[in-house]
Simulated scan of single mutants.
Amino acid sequence: MADITWEAPFCGEGANCFRIGTDPAGNAYIAVAGQEDRPLVDSREALRALIRAVKAGKADHLL
Protein backbone atom coordinates (compact mmCIF):
# COMPACT_ATOMS: atom_id res chain seq x y z
CA MET A 1 0.00 0.00 0.00
CA ALA A 2 1.18 3.52 -0.73
CA ASP A 3 2.41 5.88 1.98
CA ILE A 4 -0.98 7.51 2.62
CA THR A 5 -1.47 10.46 4.95
CA TRP A 6 -5.05 10.22 6.25
CA GLU A 7 -7.12 13.16 7.49
CA ALA A 8 -9.23 12.79 10.63
CA PRO A 9 -12.49 10.89 10.00
CA PHE A 10 -15.47 12.91 8.78
CA CYS A 11 -18.77 11.65 10.10
CA GLY A 12 -22.17 12.69 8.85
CA GLU A 13 -25.40 11.92 10.64
CA GLY A 14 -25.37 8.48 12.18
CA ALA A 15 -22.30 6.31 11.70
CA ASN A 16 -21.45 7.26 8.11
CA CYS A 17 -17.76 8.06 8.61
CA PHE A 18 -15.12 8.29 5.91
CA ARG A 19 -11.53 9.44 5.60
CA ILE A 20 -9.67 11.31 2.89
CA GLY A 21 -5.95 10.79 2.31
CA THR A 22 -3.18 11.69 -0.10
CA ASP A 23 0.18 10.23 -1.03
CA PRO A 24 3.45 11.80 -2.22
CA ALA A 25 2.70 10.76 -5.83
CA GLY A 26 -0.33 13.07 -6.02
CA ASN A 27 -3.04 10.46 -5.63
CA ALA A 28 -6.10 11.02 -3.46
CA TYR A 29 -7.83 8.32 -1.46
CA ILE A 30 -11.24 8.00 0.18
CA ALA A 31 -12.19 5.15 2.48
CA VAL A 32 -14.80 4.19 5.02
CA ALA A 33 -13.31 4.87 8.45
CA GLY A 34 -11.80 1.63 9.73
CA GLN A 35 -11.42 0.23 6.21
CA GLU A 36 -8.43 2.29 5.07
CA ASP A 37 -6.85 -0.88 3.69
CA ARG A 38 -9.51 -0.81 0.90
CA PRO A 39 -9.63 2.79 -0.38
CA LEU A 40 -10.83 4.20 -3.67
CA VAL A 41 -8.01 6.04 -5.41
CA ASP A 42 -7.97 8.79 -8.03
CA SER A 43 -6.16 12.06 -8.70
CA ARG A 44 -6.31 14.92 -6.22
CA GLU A 45 -8.17 16.98 -8.83
CA ALA A 46 -10.84 14.29 -9.16
CA LEU A 47 -11.29 14.29 -5.39
CA ARG A 48 -11.55 18.10 -5.38
CA ALA A 49 -14.22 17.89 -8.08
CA LEU A 50 -16.17 15.32 -6.05
CA ILE A 51 -16.03 17.47 -2.91
CA ARG A 52 -17.12 20.58 -4.86
CA ALA A 53 -20.05 18.67 -6.35
CA VAL A 54 -21.15 17.39 -2.94
CA LYS A 55 -20.91 20.87 -1.42
CA ALA A 56 -22.95 22.26 -4.33
CA GLY A 57 -25.71 19.73 -3.66
CA LYS A 58 -25.16 17.83 -6.89
CA ALA A 59 -24.84 14.47 -5.13
CA ASP A 60 -27.73 14.75 -2.67
CA HIS A 61 -29.66 12.10 -4.55
CA LEU A 62 -26.87 9.61 -3.78
CA LEU A 63 -26.96 10.17 -0.02
Rank of each mutant, 00 (worst) to 15 (best):
P24W: 15
R52S: 13
A31Y: 01
L40M: 15
A59H: 02
A46Y: 03
V32T: 14
V54K: 11
V32K: 10
R48M: 10
E7T: 07
Y29M: 00
Y29P: 02
M1T: 01
R44Y: 01
A15P: 00
R44T: 04
V32S: 04
R48N: 10
D3I: 02
A8H: 09
I4N: 11
T22M: 03
R52I: 02
I30G: 10
D37V: 05
E45M: 05
E13S: 11
L63H: 13
D23A: 06
G26M: 08
A56W: 03
E45N: 05
C11Y: 03
V54I: 09
G21L: 01
D23Q: 07
A25Y: 05
P9D: 14
K58S: 02
H61Y: 08
N27A: 13
E36A: 05
G57E: 09
G34S: 10
L40H: 11
S43Y: 12
A25C: 01
A59G: 00
E13R: 14
G21I: 01
D37M: 04
A8Q: 15
W6I: 03
R19F: 02
W6L: 07
I20C: 02
G26K: 15
E13M: 11
G12W: 04
C11Q: 11
E7K: 12
L40S: 14
G26F: 13
L47P: 01
R52E: 14
A33S: 14
A31R: 01
E45A: 08
A59S: 02
G26Y: 11
D37Y: 07
T5N: 05
R38D: 08
C17Q: 08
P24M: 09
A59F: 04
G14K: 11
G14D: 11
K58Y: 00
P9Q: 14
C11W: 05
D42W: 10
L63Q: 15
I51N: 12
H61N: 09
R52L: 10
V41D: 06
A33E: 13
P39K: 14
A28W: 05
E36D: 08
D23H: 05
G14C: 05
K55I: 07
R19V: 13
G14S: 12
S43Q: 12
Q35A: 14
A49P: 00
N16S: 14
R19L: 03
D42Q: 14
R52G: 05
D42S: 15
V54L: 10
R52N: 15
G21S: 02
K58I: 00
R44S: 01
D37F: 09
A25P: 00
L50R: 13
R38E: 11
L62C: 04
A53H: 09
G12K: 10
R19G: 03
L50K: 09
Y29W: 03
L40C: 12
A2D: 10
G14P: 00
Q35T: 08
P24Q: 15
E7M: 10
E13Q: 15
G14Q: 13
Q35E: 14
